[in-house]
Design a protein around this nucleic acid. Sequence first.
DNA 1: ACCATTCTTGTACATCTGTACCATTTCGGC
DNA 2: GCCGAAATGGTACAGATGTACAAGAATGGT
Lengths: 207, 207
Amino acid sequence: MSALTAAAGDGHQFSQRGMKRKTEILDAALRIIARDGLSALTMRALASEAGIPLGATTYYFPSKSALITEAFELHAARETDRVIAAMRKLSPECSAHQLADELAKFLISGLTDHRSQLIAEYELLIGATREPNLAALSRTWQAPMRQELSDAAGRLGSLKPVVDAQVLLGLLAGLEVDHLSVEPSAIDKAAIRSILRRSVSALFASS
Amino acid sequence: MSALTAAAGDGHQFSQRGMKRKTEILDAALRIIARDGLSALTMRALASEAGIPLGATTYYFPSKSALITEAFELHAARETDRVIAAMRKLSPECSAHQLADELAKFLISGLTDHRSQLIAEYELLIGATREPNLAALSRTWQAPMRQELSDAAGRLGSLKPVVDAQVLLGLLAGLEVDHLSVEPSAIDKAAIRSILRRSVSALFASS
DNA sequence: ACCATTCTTGTACATCTGTACCATTTCGGC
DNA sequence: GCCGAAATGGTACAGATGTACAAGAATGGT
């Protein structure tokens, strides 16, 4: 047992090697979720994907619920980095028009190139609705992006950068959701660009 | 068999009484989904909720997949009516400010009073991502609302009513999604109103 | 070399799930 | 009242799933 090492008291303590293996398993889990959906993530499918016996999964994760939580945490951390990097790239000094097009590019890229991953994210978000520990995580999910967008809005001369960032983030999420069930080839990219340009210019023209 | 009655050829043909029973079962299914989520919808839970034996479920629905599809169709039809009614109510002659507040009211109502139902809708939407027959349905889901919003925007003097309606619908969906994992009591209603007012006024001021 | 700890692996179990099957009952037109 | 069709109810089954468990192998510090 070796007391008072893990606060949550929910399992073993792993050494370097163990942690590496654990991360490999989490990667395999994320791969399955991204490829075939959350419902395809069974312990056996996970063991097969990770190339380990079934027993190993129960050694590293006390329950499937814990596995999903940890996988979500890992994914959230990575995704946050990706998003921030994307926002930073366009930040320096761009026009409202450029901002709109960059947002459109980011959105379209997600809808086409990372489609199944995007779907999986929303699957997890919905799942978070019924698991409190996930809910807390998903609530802080967009905070960094919100900050970055708010900064960008401020540089563009927005008088209400925080609200404008919320508007744009909300709009992005909504457009994503609206296009989730549209096959990639049928996505009207011009319409998306048009919508974002219209929104961005409307917001920043009225400040 | 009695040929050429059902085009899809996927089951029996039901008479009035049968159709009524079928609808009752579908209602029970929707109740389960709304209360405990899509994953809680098992044939046994359905039979129990509807107060029928297990065998009856397989008599009325050739497969669980068909059940979900029909349940989704039923829900979509009802929801469309509800949405249109809500939009019509505010339509006659209202200011941009009023439109924004009505949209906020609609949104907040969904997030608080019909929360689990809203979550279930997004669960089905995600599910539709991986079932083609559902995808087609969910694609036409918002068409009526889009039309209503577009009309309202036109009356308000928008020069691009179609695009503006898309923007507002996208924003609504995004705000919904962003708040799915927020417990109802923690929802910042003032912020939502503020965001919608800002968006509506920005859109219609720049036309 | 020894040993406690960490890790691995195979198997077993109780439960749940979708669906098939079939005998029985009820219904609606004649 | 009669009969074919519609509807009902109970049960069985094959497969999948999360988890428990125990015996063995590897590891690293002393």
